[in-house]
Structure formats: structure tokens, C-alpha cells
């Protein structure tokens, strides 16, 4: 970033790191103090036995027992919640990427009113998630909007509130909310693709499909990875919509890891195990993101 750097005047006696450090100090103190304070409490809570609602002084130190219970106890439902989370993550991200990419290709043409379409696509993403969850609950009710459309097409109504479909109702809500995320970002990417390789390919007699497979996909891959990483972080920590729609139920069918944390801490009132699950969620999100960012940078480097 040499172009955007002002060199320090050598005559000054102040060390060169002082000014940038002082400018960062307020932000650093606020953010890292908040994080450190929360982390100390969270780690402490994850190593005690404490009933939610009781004062903290009644907590009993148990060391790593909560983690041990979550990971290795035969009665643990932690692994089941991880499986639900995995289904939810794949069920949302894969269709969102595929549909989003297709629509981005569709929108990537010269036509009037493109900015109106962009504006319309922003709306699902900025609505209050808790209200989206409530509205989704009504739309997926037995005589709701979704069943009306499905019944008109196939003649069958589904029970979206049942254990086998509830998670998929939540998945569909997320697809509606966040496919525009893929559309808008991938569309921006498509519009900055270089023209020359395509002209060369046409001269060489490549079909449009070949050009798509051999040029568009590889050129877009780093951006696709970036959007997937950003969405993955968000889907893994998603709480509000599922909580409002189903609260983790029926049974444990919609209990993703964030819902598992809520249920363990507030419903079973086990602060220790809930906090241990919270630590696990943070570890999962951070490590997955680090791995994927490394992978993306390697792809970008090779491209």
C-alpha cells in the first residue's frame, strides 16, 4: 500500500509508530476490552455448574466437565444439533449460490430498470429478522400462503410445522432473504469481468457454454468463495428467524447450535453447558472461516 502512505518526516523525534498507534487506541480499547471481558466471563461460566436464575456465587467449579459432557456423554444432544446445523447450512447456502448465480447471469444484460431491480432485491435483506420469522410462521401455516401456492400447483398441502419439514421451512425463509446477497455481489463481479478473454474465445470458436465453464467460472471462483465465507459466518450464528418461527422444535428438529445454546441455558437452565456450547460455536466459526480464507487465497494466487 505504498501509494496510500505518507512517509514520516525524519526530522521529527517522535517514533514513527506513535501516531498510528494513538489513533487506533480508542477503537482497540473499546473492542478488545469488551471482547476480553466477555471472554473471561464466558470461559468462567463454561467451567462451573450453575442454574440460570441463581446468583453467580452459588456456582460450583467443575473444570472441563461441561465440555466433556457435551462431547462424550452418551446422553448428549450436542452432536445432533451439529447435524441439524450442517443440514441447515448446506440447505441454505447451496441453493442460494446456485439460484443467485443464475439470476445474476440473467440480470447481467443491458436493460432498462436495472437499478429498480437492485433496489427491490435489497428489501428482503434489511427487514427485521424477528418480524420475518413471525411472518414466515403465518405464511407456512397449514392454510397459509405457501400451502396455497403448493396446493394450486400439486393439489397437496404440507404440514410445515411438523418435525420433518420445519427445518426446511426455515431454510426456505433464509433462501428468500439471502439469495439476493449472492445475486447482487455476483452481479457486481460479472460486470467487472474483462472482455478480452471472451473475444479470444469467440475467435477460437468456443461456444457460450464453453466460455462459461472455462472462463466465467474460474474468474468468478474467488468471489464465489468470498460470498460463501461471509454467508457461512452468518448462517452458523443465525438465531432470530428460527427462534421466532419454531424455537428449536418440534422436538429438536430445528435446534441448530445457536438454538441449542439458548435451550440449554434458558430452558434447561444449565448455564455451564450452555456456555461450553457457546465456546464451541465460536471455535467452529473462527476455525472454519480461517481455513476457508486460506483456501480462497490459495485459489486466488493460483488463478
Amino acid at each position: 500500500m505504498a501509494a496510500t502512505t505518507i512517509d514520516q518526516k525524519p526530522s521529527r523525534r517522535r517514533p514513527p509508530w506513535l501516531a498510528p498507534a494513538l489513533l487506533i487506541v480508542p477503537a482497540f480499547l473499546v473492542v478488545f476490552a469488551l471482547a476480553a471481558y466477555s471472554a473471561v466471563w464466558l470461559l468462567q461460566l463454561s467451567m462451573v455448574k450453575l442454574t440460570f436464575g441463581d446468583p453467580f456465587r452459588t456456582a460450583e467449579w467443575v473444570g472441563l466437565e461441561n465440555y466433556n459432557w457435551l462431547l462424550f456423554n452418551e446422553f448428549t444432544t450436542f452432536w445432533a444439533s451439529l447435524r441439524v446445523t450442517a443440514v441447515y447450512v448446506l440447505g441454505t447456502l447451496v441453493p442460494e449460490l446456485v439460484i443467485g448465480f443464475l439470476i445474476a447471469l440473467l440480470l447481467n444484460r443491458k436493460m432498462r430498470g436495472n437499478s429498480i431491480f437492485t433496489a427491490a432485491l435489497i428489501i428482503p435483506m434489511v427487514l427485521m429478522p424477528s418480524m420475518v420469522g413471525m411472518v414466515g410462521r403465518l405464511y407456512f401455516s397449514p392454510y397459509g400462503l405457501i400451502n396455497y401456492f403448493i396446493e394450486s400447483l400439486t393439489g397437496i398441502r404440507h404440514n410445515w410445522y411438523g418435525a420433518d419439514l420445519a427445518l426446511w421451512a426455515a431454510v426456505l425463509v433464509d433462501i428468500w432473504e439471502w439469495t439476493p446477497f449472492f445475486i447482487l455481489i455476483l452481479l457486481a463481479g460479472l460486470q467487472t469481468l474483462p472482455i478480452e478473454p471472451y473475444e479470444a474465445a469467440r475467435v477460437d470458436g468456443a461456444s457460450r457454454l464453453q466460455a462459461f465453464v472455462h472462463l466465467t467460472l474460474p474468474l468468478m471462483l474467488p468471489l464465489i468463495m468470498t460470498t460463501l465465507i461471509l454467508r457461512l459466518m452468518d448462517v452458523l450464528r443465525l438465531f432470530d428467524v428460527i427462534f421466532v418461527m419454531f424455537g428449536g422444535g418440534p422436538g429438536t428438529s430445528t435446534t441448530t447450535l445457536p438454538l441449542y445454546i439458548y435451550r440449554t441455558t434458558l430452558i434447561q437452565r444449565d448455564v455451564g453447558r450452555g456456555s461450553a456450547a457457546s465456546v464451541m460455536l465460536i471455535i467452529i466459526i473462527v476455525s472454519l472461516t480461517v481455513i476457508l480464507i486460506k483456501l480462497r487465497d490459495r485459489i486466488r494466487y493460483e488463478a
Binding site: V31, F32, A35, Y37, S38, A39, W41, L42, L45, F52, F56, M233, L236, R237, F239, P258, I261, Y262, T265, L266, V271, G274, S275, S278, V279, L281, I282, I285, V286, T289
Partner: peptide, 16 residues
């Protein structure tokens, strides 16, 4: 730090 899920620290924040 931006990535830390709200739900994972909200109960610690509750005690704080």
C-alpha cells in the same frame, strides 16, 4: 471479533 455470534456471549453479557 466481529464474527463472534451474539447468541454465544449474550448470557455472559447478562451476568456482566
Amino acid at each position: 471479533l466481529q464474527m463472534v455470534p451474539g447468541i454465544s456471549i449474550v448470557f455472559a453479557l447478562f451476568f456482566i
